[in-house]
Amino acid sequence: MSVADMPNAEIPGAEMPDWFVHKKPRANLIVARWVPAALVGLPVLVLFAIVVYPTVWMFYHSFQDTNMMRLFQGNWSFVGWDNFGAVLSSGRFGDSVVHLMQYLLFGCVLQVILGTILALTLYEIVRQEWLRVILLIVLVLPMMLPPSIVGVLWKFMLTPSNGAVNQALLNLGLVDKHVEWFNAGVSLWAIIIADVWNWTALPLLIVYSGRVSLPPAVYEAARVDGAKGWLVMRRITLPMLKEVIAIAFIVRFMDAFKFVDLVYVMTSGGPAQTSELPAYIAFQRGIREFAIGEAAAYAIIIFAISAVLITLFLKYLKKVLKAQGIA
């Protein structure tokens, strides 16, 4: 029976030579002993202060009836699952989840699709290296602007009476009267349009770099095999980019759950809460209305949902990568 076959518990220490035991490497340091401790310790302290403590604080308060008054007075009290109950039973939360779905489907998915199309078009169609670089820079520019500026910019562009977008639509004859971009039911679309403009460049960059790193020999093989154009795209490029595209989507997906800035700048969730997203409500309830307990409950629910979804995503990704022998 070889050692490898033996269950660990059965290895009798006494019968093994003394070296036949896994030894932990001794610390062999070229610096003073406190240096490694400090190098590890300081970041841990900072991490604790800015991540662990607030998170624990939030969990704690999600079960308390904390508001600003009580917070300062220090007399909040335990209310069990009341905060969660309030959140889940309110129509406001349900509506915001529907908005989030709408945003994911038409915002994030659209960004990934558009980004992929742009990236591959850029790579396959534009032959001149310099032109490609210039186009890439131009396409990436919106992403470099702060969201508050983007929000203001699009608020102006979408102004119903004399905004650039309505003018253009009228001149092109696509609409016959001004579109009321910030009315109920439409304002969420306004946010989505601005967000697509703002963030399409991210999936574009991710997919473009993915395409650049695909092995050229495979494309030569396809050329010799006689495959061209759309067939190569459909059967070879897109399948090979599957994981890269999935990663681009996950990145945008994660952002969606904490999406506050454009909502705040463009519509403040209005009119009549018709463009609210869950994170925005948490922000609104906690920071603006100081319903800290309820805001914490919002945050935890969002955290839980996104954690589950992203774990599923990563599981899928790992499976795919494993099947291809990459990871």
Partner: peptide, 22 residues
């Protein structure tokens, strides 16, 4: 890479757990 078991010596000195540069 670190050994899971066993001993490596050079000139009688046990180096099994030494870092590479030593």
């Amino acid at each position: 890479e670190s050994a899971d078991a066993g001993r490596i010596t050079i000139g009688g000195q046990d180096i099994t757990t030494l870092p590479p540069y030593k």
